[in-house]
Design a protein around this nucleic acid. Structure first.
Length: 223
DNA sequence: CCAGACGTTGTT
DNA sequence: GTCTGG
DNA sequence: CCAGACGTTGTT
DNA sequence: GTCTGG
């Protein structure tokens, strides 16, 4: 699953990597992007835009509702809550790395995961457009973890390189077909290591959050 | 038409 | 609220 | 994702 | 246990 990530680059670097223009506002680099925050998200209209959106939204479930921050790639195209968004409101969330918590005994140990060959990348997402009642908000799609990441957690975000970003945003294909295409292995390295549990506190931020405590491995993401 | 499900984890 | 299944 | 709160009155 | 806030 993906519940925290870093976006440790300036707005202008995001604009240039994604060839997109910021619609409004400004963003500082962050090493602790968390659900509930407003973050830059790429959408495609006439051209590519970076739009401020809130991470997560309420989904009706049972008689009540739940705050959801992820959707499974396996089911996003068929679940009633997400199907319409997956077909019409796809987006890409800029990122420079993400965190996963490994359960070890009763402890949860945070790992930072990033890609040395892909220092900036996108995560596939869907979003709810702005309405009179509610601001725009997004979810991050999750998938089966690949390679070394399997030893940390059983889900991870759907990571997109430049080509993947185009495949996810472009064209008129059915969302199931599109996901199959987007999930094709492309083979780049993932570096993973444990970090300080200071990242647990959403109010804490700074480059020290991604400082390595214990190195685990550099491995191929897709094998 | 109505009834029932509808999201993610992780744990048992 | 909205979709699927019957 | 994690952290932290989680009830009611009435009074200041 | 469950909800809210970040």
């Amino acid at each position: 699953m993906c519940g925290r990530y870093s976006l440790a680059v300036s707005t202008s670097e995001i604009e240039s990597w994604f060839k997109a223009e910021l619609e409004s506002g400004d963003f500082s680099p962050t090493w602790n992007a968390a659900p509930g925050q407003v973050l830059p998200v790429m959408v495609r209209r006439d051209r590519s835009w970076l739009r401020p959106m809130r991470w997560g939204f309420q989904v009706a479930v049972g008689s009540g509702s739940s705050f959801v921050i992820n959707a499974r790639t396996e089911t996003v195209g068929s679940k009633s809550s997400f199907k319409h968004l997956a077909n019409g409101f796809r987006c890409v969330i800029p990122s420079t790395g993400f965190y996963e918590w490994q359960k070890r005994g009763g402890e949860k140990i945070p790992y930072y995961i990033h890609f040395p060959d892909l220092p900036v990348y996108g995560m596939a997402g869907i979003y709810r457009p702005e309405t009179l009642e509610q601001e725009s908000s997004f979810l991050i799609l999750t998938t089966e973890p690949k390679g070394i990441i399997r030893s940390i957690h059983d889900r991870m975000p759907l990571v997109l390189d430049r080509e993947g970003v185009e495949e996810w945003l472009d064209g008129g294909m059915d969302v199931e077909v599109r996901l199959n295409l987007t999930e094709q292995a492309r083979g780049f390295r993932a570096e993973t290591y444990t970090v300080s549990n200071r990242v647990n506190r959403v109010g804490v931020n700074g480059p020290e959050l991604v400082r390595e405590e214990r190195h685990e491995a550099v491995w191929t993401l897709f094998d």
